[in-house]
Write a protein that binds this DNA or RNA. Structure first.
Lengths: 118, 118
DNA sequence: TAGAAGTTCTACGTCTTGTAGGAGATGATG
DNA sequence: CATCATCTCCTACAAGACGTAGAACTTCTA
């Protein structure tokens, strides 16, 4: 299981944009996050690093690159959760603790999801 | 939700020992992990950092300190999983993806755990 | 063909983690 | 009580990740 490195603050922000706005250019990310007052090239660097981490893919479109999330946010989160779970020596016990820690709504959603599995 | 910082390699190893061997001294950790060939003070530093991160607690016992895990390994893992889940904007969707990604055995364990909830 | 817009490369400061030595405190032991 | 074995504390340094960005080079486009 290839370890997913944890993301920094800017990296997370850029991923949010990629997830919410579909394929984006560096320029678009910079505009979407203009409130942070960071330089355009800062976002380019962040996007490049996210590509190297395998979270984004990029395709040329004319002069510019377009960045696309490799996995959906939900998939990414599921991977993170599985990775946490993988650290348990007793997974069933860990799952039990997890089940106890979720809200009733979440528990219900989980039950439904598990039913749909079969 | 106070963010749990991710652990480094040595930190994780030290936590394993703390979880498996109950309260331990720095010396014991160093011995348990002697195969790594690291200096005793290296482990002391690691334990100190884990204490600062809130994962270990320490109590004086004569001249030495004894380190104890604040949460069980399973609780810690549940926290990590919840933290991952917390990044979703649509938790139900994320849980659904997670449910789909676990093994049949794990799914069964989860179902049981959720049943026991009520 | 010149300018706008894009990319690439390089760089630097800070924080985290791995790694550990030296100095000082303290408990045990003869 | 003096000394030795231990223990802690403080400090340090290298490497890597991340935030941050400018300079230089490339490429559309009018």
């Amino acid at each position: 299981m290839p370890t997913v490195t944890s993301l920094g603050d800017l990296e997370r922000a850029a991923m949010q944009v990629a997830w919410e706005s579909g394929p984006v250019t560096g320029r678009q990310v910079a505009e979407r996050l203009a409130d942070r007052g960071l330089a355009y090239t800062t976002w380019l660097t962040v996007l490049t690093r996210l590509e190297r981490k395998g979270l984004l893919r990029r395709d040329r479109h004319g002069r510019a690159y377009t960045y696309t999330a490799v996995a959906s946010r939900e998939d990414h989160i599921a991977v993170l959760m599985r990775q946490a779970l993988g650290q348990a020596q007793d997974r069933e016990a860990a799952l039990q603790h997890f089940a106890r820690s979720v809200s009733p709504t979440e528990a219900q959603a989980l039950r439904r999801a598990l039913e749909d599995l079969e």
